[in-house]
Design a protein around this nucleic acid. Structure first.
Length: 153
DNA sequence: GCCAACGTTGGC
DNA sequence: GCCAACGTTGGC
C-alpha cells in the first residue's frame, strides 16, 4: 500500500465538502499536469492520501482519504462547459485521468504548511521544497508517520 | 491581489 | 530541440 498527498483549493472542493456528501466519495477530476496525472495512474485501491488545502488562509493537511477507484478517463476534459475542458484530450486519445477517493477522517486541526516546513525529518518531502506546485505527491511511510505524529495522539 | 517559480506552447 | 513568451499555481 502506498501513501499520497492530494491538494485542493477549499473554495473549490474542501474536506468538509467530501465529508458531508452522502456518498462521502468524489471523482478527483481536473488534474491537468502530467506528473500529477502519472502519480494518479500509480494509485491502487486502498492506498491512502492526505487531503491538503491549498491557496487559502490556513494551507495545510486537513485529513485522510482512501483511493476507492483506480485511474480512469477524466471526461471533464471533453466537456466544453467544464472549467477543466482541454480540446487536446479526445475520446480516442484521452490525455487526462482521474481516480475516485473516499472520506476517511478529518483531523481535529489543520497541520499547517508552516509546521511541516519546520520538521527536519520532512526536509526531503516534495511539498515543502521551494517552488513546489505539484498537486499530487507521493509520501513515504516514514514521512506519513512523522506527519501523523504531529497530531500528538 | 501580488509575484516568484514553474510547466507548456509554439516559432524558428 | 532550443528557448522566449505565456499561463498557472499557490504562499504570503
Amino acid at each position: 500500500m502506498r501513501y499520497w498527498l492530494m491538494k485542493s483549493e477549499p473554495s473549490v472542493f474542501s474536506i468538509d465538502d467530501l465529508m458531508n456528501k452522502p456518498s462521502q466519495t468524489e471523482p478527483w477530476e481536473g488534474v491537468r499536469n502530467y506528473q500529477a496525472r502519472n502519480f494518479m495512474r500509480e494509485m491502487r485501491c486502498e492506498d491512502i492520501a492526505f487531503f491538503y488545502h491549498s491557496n487559502c488562509k490556513d494551507a495545510g493537511i486537513v485529513g485522510v482519504m482512501k483511493i476507492i477507484h483506480e485511474a480512469y478517463v477524466d471526461d471533464s476534459a471533453q466537456d466544453p462547459n467544464s472549467p477543466y475542458f482541454d480540446p487536446k484530450s479526445t475520446p480516442d486519445n484521452p490525455r487526462w485521468w482521474r481516480v475516485d477517493v473516499g472520506f476517511v477522517e478529518k483531523f481535529s486541526r489543520v497541520i499547517t504548511l508552516h509546521e511541516l516546513k519546520e520538521k527536519v525529518e520532512l526536509a526531503d518531502f516534495q511539498l515543502v521544497q521551494r517552488g513546489n506546485r505539484l498537486s499530487i505527491l507521493p509520501v513515504t511511510p516514514y514521512q506519513w508517520e512523522v506527519i501523523i505524529a504531529l497530531l500528538g495522539r
